[in-house]
């Protein structure tokens, strides 16, 4: 059945046309400042792996005492001999793809960077359309690729597991004498908080929510339905604040790298908690 309405098309309105009288532009502006700052910092981090004192992304420089702080931008650390560029490039496509296809970030960047629409009930741009009323949304290339979010989720879970291992390897390590060693510094706390915040973001993912139980129509009449419903409820709880987790985890990734980078550049002293 064709759903074309019988009423005539309205004349397209220019970008930003609205009767709204509140500060609707404030949210996209703040998003633009915050996200662009992070993207800029990420690019700088990615393409500046070394500094005057050696590698910028880990501290202490290897071989060290056993424990290591590794920047989350460079984890998991790959270093094949044939690769002559920043090792971050081999890793960052995973979290980048996960965040780029994330349902929250889609909302944010469609509004902020594509003005499609810039805010609710504010006229959007027609710049992206090849001809009038040719909007295709996520039904065609390139935005149909957003459907790969689930695939990036699998890689993001792998990266998250490695970040937890990194955090624990900054605390527990095998000392040179073969004895178990223990170290707990500010960097360990930072890496633990970073992994925890990324977990809250990853385990509130809409695609994960679907996979763990959202795809089931009748939990009570499906295999392990009760357990899947419980897990779905937990993921839903995280999902309710997906935007919050997205922002705080992203900021924490940046701050974690910054702290380790400053240590590696001898710009801040090592803070070690004395009771450990």
């Amino acid at each position: 059945m064709n759903a074309t309405p019988t009423f005539p098309p309205r004349t397209p309105r220019p970008l930003g046309t609205t009767q709204r009288q509140d500060r609707w532009w404030l949210e996209p502006l703040l998003n633009f400042i915050g996200f662009t700052t992070f993207v800029g910092y990420s690019l700088w981090v990615t393409f500046s792996p070394t500094g005057p004192h050696g590698l910028n992304y880990e501290w202490p420089h290897r071989p060290g005492p056993g424990w290591t702080y590794l920047s989350p931008f460079y984890s998991p650390l790959f270093g094949p001999t044939w690769w002559h560029f920043s090792p971050a490039i081999l890793v960052l496509w995973m979290p980048l793809g996960f965040r780029a296809t994330c349902y929250y970030y889609r909302k944010m960047y469609y509004r902020t960077y594509f003005a499609d629409p810039p805010a609710c009930a504010v006229s959007d741009t027609k710049f992206w359309q090849r001809k009038p009323r040719s909007y295709q949304g996520e039904t065609a290339f390139p935005w149909i690729l957003q459907n790969a979010h689930r695939w990036f989720l699998y890689f993001a879970i792998y990266v998250l597991a490695v970040l937890w291992i990194d955090a624990f390897q900054s605390i527990f390590f095998r000392a040179p004498a073969g004895q178990p060693g223990l170290h707990f510094g500010l960097g360990s706390a930072v890496l633990l908080v970073n992994a925890a915040l990324l977990s809250a973001y990853t385990f509130g993912c809409h695609a994960l929510r679907h996979l763990v139980g959202g795809s089931v129509d009748c939990w009570s009449c499906s295999r392990i339905g009760r357990a899947r419903h419980k897990v779905w409820q937990v993921v839903s709880r995280f999902n309710e604040h997906h935007m919050l987790w997205a922002w705080v985890s992203m900021i924490c990734v940046g701050l974690s790298d910054l702290y380790i980078r400053l240590l590696a550049m001898n710009d801040v002293p090592l803070t070690r908690f004395p009771w450990l």
Binding site: R106, K107, A121
Partner: peptide
């Protein structure tokens, strides 16, 4: 129904007077 046309900008959720989480 052209579900792919929706680009998840969540305005529907913002205006729903019944507080239905339409998008999520």
């Amino acid at each position: 129904l052209g579900l792919g046309y929706c680009n998840i900008t969540k305005c529907c959720t913002e205006v729903c007077p019944e507080g239905i989480h339409i998008t999520d």
